[in-house]
Computed example of a mutant assay.
Amino acid sequence: MRAPGKVNLSLRVGAVGADGYHPVSTVFQAVSVVEEVVATHADERTLSVSGPQAELVPTGPGNLALRAAELLAERTGIDAGVHLHLHKGVPVAGGMAGGSADAAAALLACDTLWGAGLAREELVELAAELGADVPFSLTGHTAVGTGRGDLLTPALSRGEFHWAFAVQDAGLSTAAVYGRYDELVAAGRPAAQVDGAEADVALLQALLAGDAHALGAALHNDLQDAAVALDPRLAEPLEVARRTGALGVVVSGSGPTVAALGRSRQHALVLAAAFTAAGAADRVLTATGPVAGARVVGVLDTGA
């Protein structure tokens, strides 16, 4: 299975509610930085990890991919084992939903391996129980997310957009970033009025027109100041991208990955090189979007 990471083209965050959650309005775009998950029959349910930052990924029951397998088994009444091998491509704790992509791929993998036969809509319902970003990892492409980000409406998008990502090996805790955001709101910064996609009309029009310049001008993230406050190093890749002519630059989700929109595939490579030359990132990635959500890549021949 293969599932994409994402960038939040816009992320508007309301004040924390009595339930401890923040209402959000966001526009997701799935990008070609992917997680690969291989599922094989096993006596138990186990997990292994390879790829960049693999050592940072827990392999016990708390792993979101294993939780996805357990949830699917529970809801379908299937008593079967599975070994999940994750190959990381999406930065860990980088604001690009790598863990959510793992969970989405694991749901689809186990459904296929076990022959559960759930419809994609049923998998999306299970995905929402695992985390706010997991449904989008299943559906991919471009979508408006409301509620906690899990209520999705597809957004029309034309053409292809080209990205360079400045990746920091030290991730940021999503809870810590939201906590800092709450402190900024308490200190007088107004929280967003979360009212669907009304505030992002210009961004959605840019996507529909395939206008990268207009999209770059419309990028927005209410959590960006909080992320930079927790990790002041993020100011450098943001400035490097602006100096190098990015059409727009934004912290992706809760950070710390910085996403810069290029004029073309070649310009995205130039932006990535600028991040590297300035020492503004531990790693750089380039990608295109939008791309499809979690999907079956193929069936391995085990020789059995």
Rank of each mutant, 00 (worst) to 15 (best):
Q53E: 06
L300N: 03
T257F: 01
D200K: 13
E44G: 06
T26V: 04
Q266Y: 06
R295N: 04
L238W: 05
L113D: 03
L64C: 04
H220D: 00
G60N: 15
G117Y: 03
L230C: 07
A187R: 12
L184C: 11
G255V: 12
L9S: 08
V284N: 03
L269R: 15
A175G: 12
A30E: 14
T146V: 12
R2L: 15
A202T: 14
A132I: 13
S137N: 05
T257V: 12
A278I: 02
A274G: 12
L64W: 09
P232E: 01
A143F: 10
G145F: 08
T40L: 08
A73C: 05
V250W: 02
V167L: 11
E239A: 15
A3R: 10
T112I: 00
S264F: 06
A30F: 09
R67L: 12
F275K: 15
A93T: 09
D200T: 11
G117A: 03
A272T: 09
V258D: 01
L184G: 06
L219P: 06
G279N: 03
A277I: 01
D222A: 15
G145C: 10
P23E: 07
A42K: 02
A132G: 13
R148Y: 06
L86V: 14
R243T: 07
G159K: 13
H83E: 04
R120Y: 00
L152E: 11
V299T: 15
D182A: 10
L138H: 06
S173Y: 07
R120Q: 10
R265G: 01
R263F: 04
A127Q: 02
A39K: 02
V124F: 00
G262E: 05
E121D: 14
R242I: 05
P135K: 06
A103R: 05
A109I: 10
L184N: 03
T112A: 09
L156W: 09
E198C: 05
V57N: 05
A109T: 09
S157M: 14
E44C: 02
G117T: 10
Q205C: 07
E236G: 00
V90E: 00
D222G: 10
Q205I: 00
V251G: 03
Q205S: 14
E129N: 01
L126A: 01
A241K: 08
A105Q: 10
E36Q: 13
E35T: 12
A202L: 13
A191V: 09
A116Y: 01
G303S: 11
Q193I: 09
V134F: 03
G81I: 01
H213N: 08
D195S: 15
L118Q: 02
A93G: 05
A104E: 02
V194F: 02
G14V: 01
V299R: 13
V144R: 14
E70M: 01
V33S: 08
A143S: 08
L71F: 01
G62M: 11
R265W: 03
V31C: 02
D102L: 02
